[in-house]
């Protein structure tokens, strides 16, 4: 540690460890409030919903949580539900896979049939781009504050109609 560093910074580093201090600072920058567009998370979350996000989470939250993350293929900010967390098993059409200690399997709530009904195509989620590493996690969405008629905490589990393989 060099003497020129601000003392507070040095203190933060001492308490949290260097890497965590840097990542915490980046995480505090947010986003804290997001607007959702498109409908692959219907009916739990609809296009136009305003959500509060906790960007300080550095680990994948528990299964059923709704997370905001950077999509592996496109770097686009996306929102999906955590179907399986680190070390858990994901059943696929042919066999299964065991997630790595930093990976999660993220899925859409809406079924293909529901999406077709509204004129959309197949959902883009882990079935397309595979497991998502924790570096791409942006935060956990936990509360809907708009529209005012639907204000409330986000449920931890998908509704029955949205349950997937």
């Amino acid at each position: 540690m060099s003497d020129s560093e601000p003392r507070r910074e040095a203190g933060l580093r001492r308490v949290l460890g260097m890497r965590r201090a840097a990542s915490l600072r980046a995480r505090l920058a947010g986003p804290w409030r997001v607007a959702v567009t498109e409908s692959s998370m219907a009916p739990a979350i609809r296009s136009g919903d305003w959500l509060l996000v906790d960007p300080t989470t550095a680990r994948w939250p528990r299964r059923g949580s709704i997370v905001v993350f950077r999509e592996p293929d496109s770097d686009l900010l996306a929102i999906k539900r955590l179907a399986a967390g680190p070390g858990e098993r994901v059943d696929l059409d042919e066999g299964h896979l065991i997630l790595d200690s930093d990976e999660a399997w993220l899925l859409s709530d809406a079924t293909d049939a529901e999406l077709l009904a509204v004129g959309a195509g197949q959902p883009i989620d882990s079935r397309r781009y595979g497991p998502v590493p924790v570096e791409l996690l942006v935060g956990r969405a936990w509360f809907r504050y708009g529209p005012l008629t639907r204000v409330g905490r986000l449920a931890g589990k998908p509704p029955v109609s949205g349950t997937r393989d």
Binding site: R33, A35, V36, S40, W50, A120, Y145
Partner: peptide, 21 residues
């Protein structure tokens, strides 16, 4: 009617997206 104040509006858009055929 009560509205959410402007300064509380979301700062970012996130996509719950799917293919657009």
């Amino acid at each position: 009617m009560f509205r959410i104040p402007r300064f509380l509006a979301p700062t970012t858009t996130v996509h719950a997206h799917c293919d657009l055929p």
